[in-house]
Design a protein around this nucleic acid. Structure first.
Length: 483
RNA sequence: AGCGAGGUAGGGUAGACUGGAGUGCCCGCCGGGCUCAUAACCCGGAGAUCGGUGGUUCAAAUCCACCUCUCGCUACCA
């Protein structure tokens, strides 16, 4: 049985879940559900990234211990994903013992391979924020967060010999042209790696809230190094062989592409693992033309939208509004338009009118598959398999539209006898196939349609017109128009 | 500044690698049809000098050069 392992980034616990998190996790969920539909042995991982100075500071602001703080916030992510109908197989937290164990062991492997050495890190430090700031991010030589003076500071650190992996990384990129997806992003990384890699400072003597560094317990492991290892620790490693490794796909935002496309593969090579098969870089949602930010007060809470519309309306919107890898604009108006036009009018109304006619006729549902010609199943599969979910939805919608047209053309309301039975047969079978195709995207709606048809939700191989051995019963509309 | 991506009807996009009538899709707009259906469904129409200039070619949205505008990244906060 083919295996499929998909991950989301683990989310950093310095705030509540927002639309950006929801997007990443939905993309991963759709892929996971698609592979389960195909019958693959699928593992879908998400979780939370809980160490680091920022988390500790946030906790302090709220008058909590770091552990209390992360317990609360992590739970809010768990709940949110439940509400979004996310089907993850595991939820990893970097403060869990199983993770700490994995990090310690991973670091040891890197060390045994001669890739860790002691050194000094020198950089710009903002004392009030207790953090180093990359030179390029300074604003007029001041801290971009608080605007205060920064000073040059040296501290002891242990380095990872990232520079050693420059050639092997470049080789990996050229041998695996689909490692970074969409492909157009590859050049960005390749050019930067060609410019030369500096070794990575991978421990912090000043940060307490973290995993102690195996070879000097006064240091903690740099949060990124800590966080990336979650993809392995969740698989039960090092206690058991990580059977799903290498991951088929890491879903990441473009802001963390560097860590996943450069640092993580290098770490893996150092510890003796294969790099992941691909890294899917998604775009960012901007809200009403602006970046989402707290100061603008436009941080969108996905859960409110679920309440106002429906889980599936939101899931559909997220997947349909922006092609993978591009930025998309989020606004409630756009969500509303898609809900009303594509979900209520195209899909919801199709199922509703078909079942109304079927119920009225009360007769047989037998005929020849005519409408099946419009079903581009192969195209759909290819699109899903190359992670082009945006195109795949277009393909499904072409079939939905073809089905609506079929009904208009055959005019079942004017027919009777065999002709009526035939038209209804095709219409009902179309609805059944559609329920399967949309199930990775809109699991709840897929279930609703199946229930109205009176059968369990089908598998991928059931996407063919066949004899009807079920009795459809009209239910309530799938989607309600919102004004 | 360097590296990267992009500028296609009112808005959003596909097409570009492998040149061949501006060909397609979604929203909006205008007109028509239908009445099974959630003011839903179906058909037709208007609307684009394909960012600009120059070049290659029988032929350029597509290839090349230059220009211009927009956006992203430039690694140790995540």
């Amino acid at each position: 049985m083919p295996r499929f392992y998909v991950t989301t980034p683990i989310f950093y616990l310095n705030g509540k879940p927002h639309i950006g998190h929801a997007y990443a996790v939905t993309v991963a969920d759709v892929l996971a559900r698609w592979h389960r539909l195909k019958g693959d042995d699928t593992f879908f991982l998400t979780g939370t990234d809980e160490h680091g100075e920022k988390v500790a500071k946030k906790a302090q602001e709220n008058g909590l211990s770091p552990q209390e703080h992360v317990d609360q916030l992590s739970e809010s992510f768990r709940k949110a994903w439940k509400k979004l109908n996310i089907s993850n197989n595991d939820f990893i937290r970097t403060t869990e013992l199983r993770h700490e164990k994995a990090v310690r062991h991973f670091v040891k492997l890197m060390h045994d391979n001669g890739d860790i050495y002691e050194g000094v890190y020198e950089g710009w430090y903002c004392t009030p924020d207790e953090t180093f700031i990359p030179e390029s991010q300074l604003i007029d030589g001041k801290c971009p967060e608080c605007g205060r003076e920064v000073k040059k500071l040296k501290e002891e650190t242990y380095y990872f010999r990232l520079s050693r992996y420059q050639d092997r990384l470049l080789e990996y990129y050229s041998e695996n042209p689909d490692f970074i997806l969409p492909r157009k992003r590859t050049l960005e990384i390749v050019n930067r790696v060609k410019e030369g890699l500096k070794d990575l400072s991978m421990t912090r003597p000043s940060v307490k809230w973290g995993i102690p560094f195996t070879f000097n317990e006064k240091h903690t492991v740099y949060v990124w190094v800590d966080a990336l290892i979650n993809y392995l620790s969740a698989l039960g490693w090092p206690d058991s062989e990580p059977k799903y490794w290498p991951a088929d796909i890491h879903i990441v935002g473009k802001d963390i592409m560097w860590f996943h496309a450069v640092i993580w593969p290098a770490m893996l090579m150092s510890a003796g693992f294969k790099p992941p098969k691909s890294v899917l870089v998604t775009g960012h949602y901007i809200v009403e033309g602006r970046k989402m930010s707290k100061s603008l007060g436009n941080v969108t809470d996905p859960l409110e939208l679920v309440d106002k519309y429906s889980v599936d309306a939101l899931r559909y919107f997220l997947m349909r509004e922006m092609p993978l890898g591009d930025d998309g604009d989020f606004s409630e108006q756009l969500l509303k338009a898609r809900n009303n036009n594509e979900l209520a009018s195209d899909l919801g109304n199709l199922v509703y009118r078909v079942l109304t006619m079927t119920e009225k006729s009360g007769g047989k549902l037998e005929g020849r598959p005519e409408l099946e010609k419009s079903l581009e199943l192969k195209t759909f599969q290819e699109e899903m398999d190359r992670y082009d979910t945006y195109k795949a939805l277009e393909t499904v919608w072409r079939f939905i539209k073809a089905s609506n047209k079929y009904i208009n053309d055959t005019k079942p309301w004017e027919l009777e006898g065999e002709a009526l039975s035939n038209a209804l047969y095709n219409s009902v079978e179309a609805c059944r196939v559609i329920s399967i195709l949309i199930s990775p995207f809109m699991p709840e709606t897929a279930e609703k349609i199946s229930k109205q048809l009176g059968i369990p939700l089908g598998r991928l191989e059931d996407c063919r017109f066949s004899k009807i051995g079920y009795l459809p019963k009209k239910g309530s509309p799938l989607f309600i128009r919102v004004d």
